[in-house]
Nucleic acid binder design. Structure first.
Lengths: 111, 111
DNA sequence: CTCTTCTATCGTATATTTGCGATATAAGAT
DNA sequence: ATCTTATATCGCAAATATACGATAGAAGAG
């Protein structure tokens, strides 16, 4: 009766799923967009833009950081977040690879 | 105290998040891979390949179907699933668009 | 030191997801 | 009609996610 048997799947599948999971909430996508709009580390205007409480935004940021999509350095009272572009590109290609595989397999779409 | 205030975000963000959510579980990625490996509608070998109970697999398939990533016709005792390639491509480009935006914004990576 | 500001974390409530067994359903076989 | 087979759905239990307010902590301003 072990719940969440993710360990039963391949590492690659787990990684891809973890990446997708990090993007599976509109708030986190919005955060990524905000981070992208600025060309420098942003310290907290995110809270003002999003319709969420500060603690909730902080939590979402933590999840993005844990997933590796975002880098952050907390320097005392203000912290500094920006997109971890390398990880992003890695997952993008990984995703593209899956898409390509799917496409090739489904060229002769059946239904 | 309204939970899950997804409606507070743009439709595009919600759509992208919903797509990511559908892919946010290794089992569902594995299912997509199985569907892709066969070049025709698959009628149920998925359960044999995955380390999950039949009812659980059926549930995952339903989620993929609801998310629009998979098309399926249940013809009595056996059903027929295959990848909804159009929806997949749409979301792929959508995702690629986000990635591109992110990349352009982060050319001069700050940290 | 005290106050302010910004952010992280804790505690908590609720909602959703995940998983399974049991059961229903639907069509073909006997 | 009954049995078999394949799949979907129901009902439940446990885990996770989501959200917020309250609080803690860290650094600069006064």
């Amino acid at each position: 009766m072990a719940f969440h048997k993710k360990e039963a799947f391949s590492q690659r599948e787990q990684d891809l799923a973890a990446f997708a999971k990090a993007m599976s909430h509109p708030a986190r996508i919005a955060i990524l967009k905000v981070l992208a709009q600025r060309n420098e580390c942003i310290c907290g205007e995110i809270v003002e833009v999003l319709p969420l409480a500060q603690s909730t935004v902080s939590q979402h940021l933590k999840e993005l950081k844990t997933a590796g999509l975002v880098k952050g350095e907390t320097d005392g009272p203000r912290s500094c977040y920006c997109i971890n572009w390398k990880a992003f590109e890695k997952f993008n290609t990984e995703l593209g690879f899956l898409f390509k595989n799917l496409k090739m397999a489904n060229e002769k779409s059946c239904c």
